[in-house]
Nucleic acid binder design. Structure first.
Lengths: 208, 208
DNA sequence: ATATAAATTAACTATTTGGTTAAACCAAAT
DNA sequence: ATTTGGTTTAACCAAATAGTTAATTTATAT
């Protein structure tokens, strides 16, 4: 069996594992379901990934990486504060709604075992804080000093932005019920609109 | 055995079931854990609540009720739009942070079986829409007409408010990592601050 | 006090689940 | 052709799990 095929099998398993863990979470995921989805024998799961725990750990770790990479990507550019906000919001909403399982999965699992998550996060946190937080916070301070925006606690601002981008995806059934009365309306249109709506909302909230 | 004692047993079981389902979710909850926590024999669970499914259904239903009641409570008063926002935000943040397991549980379970949730919600949705949404939306339209606030899509406004109130609770480990660098700072203080910060943020965002 | 009905338990069952094992398979090297 | 080493599978195992049963205890009514 060639290297390509070996990798293919391993990757197929991993892809299947992601799907199942995303949909069912750690407790709900079944090794049998994963091997069925990958089209291989269940024993192969343990051949390539020793245990459910190890397998989950790799899926979770990779997902957190992807999550953080996306959080870090856009804000590292050199832009004005308002541009930064526009681009970040657009990027976050795109990412979350293109990968709707990820936010639900991440929220579920960081609350199931928050210590494991914090340990996992330690390595990536500095990158995020240096590349994203720091320049963003500096930009905020500058604009406050220049009198362009109101004085505001950057922690609340950041949490506000992320909340508005991420919650609609994880609260979709709730929002569809309350806002759309389950007529489901055009959810994709609603999310598309939010890219502009949220950015405007934030900028209006801080602009003097 | 007296009526009080009978009720006491049933209620103890229910309370234990809530705790375990809140903490572990449907898939992670174990009937044995629930009976241990209630201090009774496992068979009693089935004596009072036929199955895990039925028991979960009752816990979930009661939780959704509590959730919706809280969402509905404050906005039903007769206040100005800005007062409404202040009171609603204060109330939502208080409720969610006093019952931090509820938002995580609800988000987890509405995504696990969103159809079951929608069915459950149908009865309560009209109440919520009539008592909360309708007067709030009317107030928004009035204030737009009077030129007090910018024209804004009420759906996005509502989703924004709820997002900023609920997400910090369900994303706590993430936020603690990114914003507090896991020094955990004073989380309770941060949440307390948000009651004012979010209300101000929203009002500034819409005020002309 | 005794009969009756409800509450409670210990012990059990059937099924599911993560994980193992030994044999079969297959590709490449000799 | 045969050996060799990694890959894959069918069959199996032990523990866990939701649910059941039959017996015991407790409370209530007569």
């Amino acid at each position: 069996m060639t290297d390509e095929q070996r990798l293919k099998t391993e990757e197929q398993i991993f892809a299947a594992a992601m799907e199942v863990f995303f949909e069912k979470g750690y407790y709900g995921a079944r090794m049998q379901d994963i091997s069925d989805k990958a089209g291989i024998n269940k024993a192969l799961l343990h051949y390539y990934y020793r245990s459910k725990d190890k397998m989950f750990e790799m899926v979770f770790s990779k997902t957190i990486d992807k999550f953080f990479e996306n959080m870090a990507f856009t804000l590292s550019k050199d832009m004005s504060l308002f541009e930064r906000i526009e681009v970040a919001v657009d990027n976050y909403i795109s990412f979350f709604s293109d990968n709707p399982h990820i936010p639900v999965f991440v929220v579920q699992e960081i609350n199931r075992d928050s210590e494991a998550f914090k340990k996992l996060m330690i390595d990536k946190i500095d990158m995020l804080r240096n590349n994203v937080m720091a320049p963003f916070v500096m930009s905020i301070q500058e604009n406050i000093a220049k009198g362009v925006i109101r004085p505001i606690d950057f922690r609340h601002l950041i949490v506000n932005i992320v909340s508005m981008c991420i919650f609609p995806v994880i609260g979709k059934p709730l929002i569809q019920g309350v806002v759309f009365a389950n007529n489901s309306g055009d959810w994709n249109l609603f999310i598309e609109e939010r890219k502009k709506a949220v950015a405007e909302f934030v900028i209006n909230a801080i602009k003097k």
